[in-house]
């Protein structure tokens, strides 16, 4: 079994505060892995590093064997690299213009502008080939959240962060954004490709809404859904990007026991039916112990235990972290 995600020696400092210290972490494909720890243990910080929100102070993360996240190196060089080809062309154009040939000079100016536009477009859209190319110059820019989604990572939030004024359907379609191909030109001309894609994406969104139990509620504006349904909608939206790894940040927070049981079943189904790998942050120990294959415990930013739920439950360090030192 290969690893979906492989984090080595992740450290994150905020000024003097060490939020995460030297954490190693792997997630085998097809497993459900939980991350637990007392409040302030650095769970969410670690989560946010994986999602690409924070760059780690040290360490790196491989996602499906590709190094995605690490401390940025010489990122300031990147814009200068974009300017190099047009600058060379500009110099050539200047050299030509001294000869007085107006046609060639005009051509030179046109090519310079085109190259400038081209390199800016490449720099903004960052295709994979471009990213590999700039690494050759020793430039590494850590993946941004949207790059991680493209690579196959979906997530939900501890506090619900739906697009409150958009319908449930639109929320799911935003989740699908990175998988859709139509450009604004397609949309403008309403090409067959655009219409086909719009149709298939709506069908797919309906399937996802059905999967999480929101069948037929696609037209309801997100903020008008009941709390439990909003949580489900967040999962549907995360699934829409076709992730390989799903990060769930306290998915059962604020739910009653019945809703919690339903959601636990849903998470189990996500793995069995969609073949997803799941990383779970959760406070409800019944959920964690019930469905996890592996559990990792963080305290004060350090990994204090790792193993199967049973092993972790009996680990003296874990008991100490949660309950304090037993009286001598």
């Amino acid at each position: 079994m290969t690893d979906v995600l492989n984090a080595t020696k992740i450290t994150k400092r905020f000024g003097g505060l060490v939020a995460v210290h030297d954490v190693d972490f792997t997630i085998p494909e097809g497993s459900i892995v939980s991350l637990i720890g007392p409040n302030g243990a650095g769970k969410t910080t670690f989560f946010n590093i994986i999602a690409g929100i924070y760059d780690p102070t040290a360490g790196s993360i491989d996602f499906h064997g590709e190094n995605m996240i690490a401390r940025a190196r010489r990122a300031w060089l990147e814009p200068f690299l974009w300017l190099t080809p047009p600058a060379i062309l500009l110099l050539i154009t200047l050299a030509i213009s001294t000869s007085g040939n107006q046609v060639l000079t005009g051509l030179g100016i046109v090519f310079t502008i085109l190259t400038l536009l081209g390199s800016m477009v490449t720099g903004v859209s960052r295709p994979l080939a471009y990213q590999r190319a700039i690494r050759r110059f020793g430039i590494f820019r850590s993946a941004r959240p949207n790059d991680m989604v493209v690579a196959g990572l979906g997530r939900t939030f501890q506090n619900i962060r739906l697009f409150a004024n958009m319908t449930a359907m639109d929320n799911v379609l935003v989740g699908m954004h990175s998988r859709l191909k139509t450009t604004w030109i397609d949309a403008l001309l309403s090409t067959p490709r655009d219409r086909r894609e719009e149709k298939t994406s709506r069908v797919r969104a309906n399937e996802l809404l059905t999967l999480v139990g929101l069948k037929g509620r696609g037209d309801v504006v997100a903020k008008n859904l009941p709390y439990g349904d909003q949580r489900r909608l967040e999962i549907a939206r995360a699934l829409a990007s076709d992730p390989k790894l799903l990060l769930l940040d306290e998915p059962t927070a604020g739910m009653n026991p019945n809703e919690t049981a339903n959601l636990t079943r849903l998470i189990g189904r996500l793995r069995s039916e969609l073949g997803l790998t799941v990383l779970l942050i959760e406070h409800d120990m019944r959920v964690v112990m019930g469905i996890s294959d592996r559990v990792t415990v963080l305290d004060h930013g350090e990994r204090i235990a790792e193993g199967t739920p049973d092993e972790v439950r009996r680990d003296p360090k874990v008991i100490e972290a949660y309950l304090g030192t037993p009286p001598a």
């Binding site: 493209v150 939030f157 962060r161 697009f163 409150a164 935003v174 990175s178 939206r237 995360a238």
Partner: peptide, 11 residues
């Protein structure tokens, strides 16, 4: 509506 959430959804 929510820049960070949008970017985490792949926008």
């Amino acid at each position: 509506q929510d820049q960070q959430a949008a970017s985490l959804m792949g926008v």
